[in-house]
Design a protein around this nucleic acid. Structure first.
Lengths: 345, 345
DNA sequence: GTGAAAGCGCTAACAA
DNA sequence: TTGTTAGCGCTTTCAC
């Protein structure tokens, strides 16, 4: 725990290079319109003094922070059992880093934290926000919009109702689900069950809708509700087996859920895929490849989703900064999914 | 992507409340030594105007940021397959939030990023850093110390060599390992194998040392090297089975490794714990409880470790700020572990 | 192309 | 107890 030494200022660099502060500032910020000789001299002085600009001073005048908040509603703690979030975070981090932006992580533990997050965002500490709007009834998005911070959402917010000023990045959950169920049907399965995700999240609803698109007249008892967790998958699978012992396929809302379902199927003496074919969603490497048998699943490029979220936000900020504001509002992005065949279906 | 409106300043609040800026500042920062009437008037003005202090301006003069960097070396991407990191992050976040500090997340993707992180920390954007020093030869810690930023490490840094100014928070890895192996021995097992973690991390080395403490004269072929991943656990388990088909217990360096080992044991037709007893390390709920059979393991309170890291740093910063610097340097913390018995041993 | 000067919004002496 | 004043370190007109 060393102590911080006083850092050299622009002033010091200017003195050493024998130029004005303004010139040093120009050089530090790109050096356009400064004679090469001076650029060189300033660079040298910066080097020798180990000068690093004081971000606070800079922000004070530019009103830019080169920092973006990532807001994660985490009361459900699923966030942390599920590599999904981590992967997205990684994509975000990469993109932000590439554009010299910092990532300020805001984890909310429950409703009490919402005010804090709202205050922080309204406080103008960051240029924008990336928000994972996990739940349909989450008040956070409203709060954020009110704070007036440019925001991109991860996953379609349930309340957006087609508002075009709400920007989000999502996977084609419904299409992916359709692909999965069609694949099962193509395998000749007729009693295809679905284990849903947490239905207060749009991704779960969309996947259920996709299932229904294909299985319009399915036995409703073939649908069991779960919550994206392995434990939920187990519970739901037991329920299904109980209700419909004759089912011959399961489409689970995600890989974690599928892994739970697989365990129960094995316990019950069913062979996968011979007796029951199983498909997941996500294609989380560590999960899908480790299950027994390896999981056929709907792949979404999670890291890429994070990267795109950041890119969208940064572009928007850039435009706003250059006052091209209303001209071209960035629009949401929905990424395609692909079916990855392994052994379970 | 709404646009930011111009925020009211201290000046505006002062005008509205009919007091000086200094008074408003006092009220905003606690309100000591200001008459109640004025406090009330200022509060009202703040409320009406929706005033939020400009953090940049404040930092410029206080030289405080109320922000802490969390640096994670993540080239190994294990970080994201392993809930370990996420849990620690949660603990950190809780503690920082409780003290009104922000969490700036710095993910490094490889050596190239080190310079960037060094620059950022040296830039004085944050008051301190929490660093996960994953590898023995990592240059990052040196860089950080050089940047002069108060730092607390997660896990004992390999190069610290007893330097008392290096503050870290760690589990009693060696002691926990001893407990695990003793437990196996107590079960009457005699051919106890160990699957190590990545040996360029102190936690792995310490657990191996703990194993050796108890199994001083063990057959060296009973030790197989892995890397804290399920896949590594599988590989190592196969190796061990190959070399020592008569082994009757395995202590794995963590739960993920143990889960891989369990899979291989099952494949090989061994029953757990009847033929081979297995113990892991960490007690990651989603892993240890989901394995078949549920895993006996050495529990460490991961979230608490994160919380303590943050607390240690914040305390240090507080003291430094009050110039009690050298008096009481904070010292490292090593947390005890406990053995959690489930069915695998 | 370069420098001088005027703040950005806030806190912290110091006076009153 | 309150107000006045002087910066914190930087960017950015505006002259030169």
């Amino acid at each position: 725990m060393t102590d911080t030494a006083p850092r050299p200022t622009l002033e010091a660099v200017a003195a050493r290079a024998g130029v004005s502060r303004a010139t040093v500032s120009r050089v530090v910020n790109g050096g356009d319109g400064v004679r090469d000789v001076l650029v060189e001299r300033v660079r040298k002085a910066v080097e020798e003094l180990g000068y690093v600009p004081n971000q606070a001073a800079r922000s004070l005048v530019t009103r830019r922070h080169d920092a973006v908040a990532v807001v994660v509603a985490e009361p459900e703690s699923r966030v942390f059992a599920d590599p999904f979030f981590a992967l997205q975070l990684r994509g975000i981090s990469k993109e932000l880093t590439a554009h010299d932006n910092q990532l300020v992580l805001l984890l909310t533990e429950g409703r009490d934290d919402h005010a804090r997050v709202g205050r922080y965002l309204a406080g103008g500490h960051v240029d924008g926000a990336l928000v994972f709007s996990l739940h349909l009834d989450d008040p956070l998005p409203e709060l954020i919009q009110r704070a007036g911070v440019p925001t991109v959402f991860g996953g379609r917010p349930g309340w957006s109702g087609g508002r075009s000023d709400v920007v989000y990045v999502d996977s084609d959950n419904r299409g992916g689900a359709r692909d999965a169920v069609r694949h099962l049907a193509g395998l000749g399965r007729t009693r295809i069950a679905h284990i849903t995700g947490a239905l207060d999240q749009t991704s779960a609803v969309d996947r259920l809708d996709g299932y229904r698109d294909v299985m319009a007249d399915a036995d409703p008892r073939l649908i069991a509700e779960a919550d994206f967790t392995p434990a939920g998958g187990e519970r739901a699978m037991r329920e299904l087996l109980d209700r419909c012992p004759d089912l011959d396929a399961v489409f689970a809302a995600n890989d974690l859920t599928a892994s739970g379902a697989l365990r129960v199927l094995r316990e019950s003496g069913r062979r996968v895929p011979d007796d029951v074919a199983v498909i997941g969603f996500d294609d989380l490497q560590p999960v899908a490849e480790q299950t027994d048998p390896p999981l056929t699943t709907v792949r979404q490029d999670i890291e890429e989703m994070g990267r795109i979220m950041a890119r969208l936000l940064l572009h928007g900020l850039d435009r706003a900064h250059r006052h091209e504001a209303a001209a071209t509002p960035p629009s949401s992005v929905v990424l395609p999914t692909t079916l990855v065949r392994r052994r379970s279906a």
